[in-house]
C-alpha cells in the first residue's frame, strides 16, 4: 500500500470522493419528449418536443437532437460558449455511445464518452466534478440521454410489435439532461460522490430491471452513509434513478433492514417522471430518468432553498441483448452524488 496518495483529502474511502473545492452545478438543462411533457414535472423542463422524432428523420437523430439541445440550453443559461468548456463527459444507452459521440462532434468540445447504462447521469457528473475539483478542467459538462424508441429497438422488440409486456417492465424516458460544472458561482454545490461496485444478485428478467438494480442501489447508498458518517435523515431527499414500482419498495425494505431510516426522505426518479395514469407499467427508466429529474426538479429545489441536501443515486442495469439471450444474469451498478443548496 502506497502512502504517497496525491490528494488524501479528496479520497474518503475506496468508494467515496469528497469535493474539497467549491465545485458547483453552474447551470443545468433538460429536454424531453411528448409523454414526459405531460408528466407532473412538465413545467420544469426547458424544452418539450411534441413528437418523438423531434423534427428529425430517425429516432437516433432525434435522441442526438435532445442531447444537443440540453447542452446548448445549459451553456446559454450559464452564459458560456462551447470553447469555454474544457471537457464534455457524456453517455447514452445506444451501442458504441453514438448519441454522445455524434453530438460531441457538433460541439467540438474535448470529450470523454462514458457508459454506465442508466447510471450514466451520475457517472458523468461525478467524474466532471472530480476533474474540475482536481484542476484538470476549469469547466466541464456532464450530459446523458435516452430515447424510448431507440432503446426499445436495441434492447427489446420493434416499437410496433404487439407483444404483451408484464407489469414489471418500465418505460424508457425520452429526454436528455446536461449540467455545467465549475468552481464558484451560486448553483448547487457538489460535495460527495460514491462510486458503485457491480452487483449481481442473479436476477435474469430483462423486463424486470427494478428487481435487478435494487441491490446495487442499496450497496452504494450503504457505502455512502458509512463513508460520510451521514444518515438518510441528514438529507432532505434521497432519490434512486429508475428502480420504479418494484425496485423501489425492495430497496427501501433492504435499507431499513440494514438499520437505515428512509422515512419521508426516499423517492425514486422512475416514479416521478410520469403520473400514475400515464400507462408506463412499473415506471420510468433510462439515463434520462434520473437526469431529467435531477437537472430540473432537484436543481430547482436546491436553488430555491426548498431543499438543503439531496443525494441522487443513479442505477444502471449492465445487460446487453446478447448477454441475456445467453442466459446471463443482469449485473447492475449505482453511482451516488451528494448536492448541497446554493449560496
Amino acid at each position: 500500500m502506497s502512502t504517497m496518495v496525491a490528494a488524501p483529502k479528496s479520497r474518503v474511502s475506496r468508494q467515496t470522493w469528497q469535493f474539497t473545492e467549491d465545485v458547483r452545478v453552474q447551470a443545468s438543462a433538460t429536454v424531453v419528449g411528448p409523454k414526459e411533457g405531460k408528466g407532473p414535472l412538465a413545467s420544469l423542463f426547458d424544452k418539450i418536443y411534441p413528437d418523438i422524432y423531434a423534427g428529425q428523420k430517425s429516432w437516433e437523430k432525434a435522441e442526438r437532437k435532445l442531447l444537443e439541445d440540453a447542452i446548448q440550453i445549459a451553456l446559454k443559461k450559464a452564459n458560456l460558449k462551447e470553447d469555454q468548456i474544457d471537457l464534455l463527459l457524456a453517455g447514452d444507452l445506444l451501442n458504441q455511445n453514438i448519441t454522445a459521440n455524434f453530438t460531441a462532434e457538433l460541439l467540438s468540445i474535448p470529450t470523454l464518452g462514458m457508459y454506465g447504462a442508466c447510471s450514466t447521469s451520475m457517472l458523468t457528473l461525478a467524474n466532471a466534478a472530480a476533474l474540475v475539483n482536481s484542476g484538470f478542467a476549469e469547466r466541464a459538462i456532464a450530459a446523458c440521454s435516452s430515447h424510448n424508441a431507440t432503446a426499445e429497438r436495441q434492447y427489446r422488440y420493434p416499437t410496433e410489435y404487439g407483444g404483451q409486456k408484464p407489469p414489471s417492465s418500465q418505460w424508457t424516458v425520452t429526454g436528455a439532461g446536461a449540467a455545467v460544472v465549475g468552481i464558484g458561482g451560486n448553483g448547487p454545490r457538489l460535495t460527495y460522490a460514491t462510486i458503485g461496485k457491480v452487483v449481481d444478485m442473479g436476477m435474469k428478467d430483462p423486463l424486470d430491471m427494478g428487481s435487478a438494480m435494487a441491490p446495487a442501489a442499496v450497496s452504494t447508498m450503504i457505502a455512502h452513509f458509512q463513508d460520510t458518517g451521514r444518515q438518510p435523515q441528514d438529507y432532505d431527499l434521497i432519490v434512486t434513478g429508475d428502480l420504479a414500482g418494484i425496485g423501489y419498495p425492495i430497496a427501501k425494505e433492504m435499507l431499513e433492514k440494514e438499520g437505515f431510516n428512509m422515512d419521508k426522505v426516499y423517492n425514486d426518479c422512475g416514479l416521478m417522471v410520469y403520473s400514475p395514469e400515464q400507462e408506463v407499467f412499473a415506471g420510468a427508466s433510462g439515463c434520462a430518468s434520473s437526469a431529467v429529474v435531477t437537472y430540473s426538479y432537484i436543481m430547482n429545489q436546491l436553488q430555491r432553498g426548498a431543499m438543503k441536501r439531496v443525494l441522487v443515486c443513479a442505477t444502471g442495469a449492465l445487460l446487453s441483448p446478447i448477454s441475456y439471450q445467453q442466459g446471463e444474469a443482469i449485473p447492475c451498478i449505482a453511482h451516488a452524488v451528494a448536492f448541497e443548496g446554493g449560496a
Binding site: V218, S219, Q226
Partner: peptide, 29 residues
Amino acid sequence: MATKAKQASGLHMTKEMYKQQAAKYQIKR
C-alpha cells in the same frame, strides 16, 4: 465493517434470499 469476500458489497444476503425477498413485490397478473 465486516467484509466477506463472497457477499455482494455490504449486502448481508445470498442470491437465493434476495430472490425470495424481491418476489414479494412482484405485481400479480
